[in-house]
């Protein structure tokens, strides 16, 4: 009976604390600005948004996994590493709240910043509607999946942050793990794997890829499997995060 309110209390306290940290200092604003500039550059320069001649956000969404792979670990790297280096983890562990709530609260705060950054791209959606007749249902679905995918990248980043007291180390570990999950669905990698180990192995690898699960949404297909996949990744890494954050307490 007590476990649920305990957990929720920790979540609320940690969420408020992290929101102060993100928005009290310029961290969140700098993050959002750099992220939006990078996304804009890739969309216009990399994917030739206007040259496609189609009213579609395809050239915009195609970059999301690759940018998240770098930006989400940067957003999450301070979550636990900073507590360790400042010694405030001792303060957290002395509070009558459970670790799972703290893990969820910190992750949710980072996800809020990521969601806010994504919300600033909504004018793109408005412009394609002005220019033509896009498939708005598919776009809405892709936005939703993009947000969910950002949460998965953040869960990886937060877990890596609980491994070390150095933010840079946490960032590098998270980017490497995120790259593995992203590139697992890259055609270049997949054709290489299928050439060496056969197509069955390549298909298995692709099953764990963020790219593969994100692409279905871009075609306007609502895949429950993809939603379940990203949710599972979030829960799995939140579990690792809790275990790794608890190491200080364990005998």
């Amino acid at each position: 009976m007590r476990a649920v309110p305990d957990c929720f209390r920790g979540l609320k306290a940690a969420y408020r604390r992290e929101m102060t940290a993100y928005f009290g200092a310029p961290v969140a604003y700098v993050f959002m600005t750099v992220f939006l500039v990078a996304l804009g550059l890739f969309t216009w320069e990399g994917a030739r948004f206007f040259d496609t001649g189609a009213a579609s956000l395809g050239p915009f969404f195609v970059w999301h996994p690759w940018l998240y792979m770098i930006f989400m670990p940067a957003l999450a790297m301070r979550l636990w590493a900073d507590e360790r280096s400042a010694g405030t983890d001792e303060l957290l562990l002395s509070l009558p709240v459970g670790l799972p709530g703290l893990v969820a609260g910190k992750w949710l705060a980072a996800w809020t910043v990521a969601g806010a950054a994504l919300a600033f791209t909504l004018p793109m959606w408005a412009s394609v509607n002005y220019l033509g007749n896009p498939d708005n249902a598919a776009i809405a679905l892709t936005y939703f999946m993009s947000l969910l995918m950002a949460g998965a990248y953040l869960a990886i980043g937060a877990a890596a942050s609980a491994l070390t007291s150095r933010q840079v180390t946490a960032f590098v570990i998270a980017v490497v793990v995120a790259f593995v999950f992203t590139a697992a669905g890259w055609p270049l990698v997949l054709s290489g794997i299928s050439g060496i180990a056969g197509s069955a192995v390549a298909e298995t690898v692709a099953r764990f890829s963020f790219l593969t699960h994100f692409e279905a949404a871009q075609r306007g297909v609502l895949e429950w499997r993809a939603i379940f996949f990203f949710a599972s990744v979030i829960v799995f890494f939140a579990g690792l995060n809790t275990l790794w954050a608890a190491r200080r307490r364990a005998p």
Binding site: R9, R17, T88, E90, L91
Partner: peptide, 22 residues
């Protein structure tokens, strides 16, 4: 705790409000 670790980006009332909510 030893060395009184605190969240440096918070003001004292913000810090106390954080502890109160926890």
């Amino acid at each position: 705790p030893e060395g009184a670790p605190l969240y440096e980006d918070m003001t004292p009332p913000e810090f106390l409000a954080f502890l109160a909510s926890a």
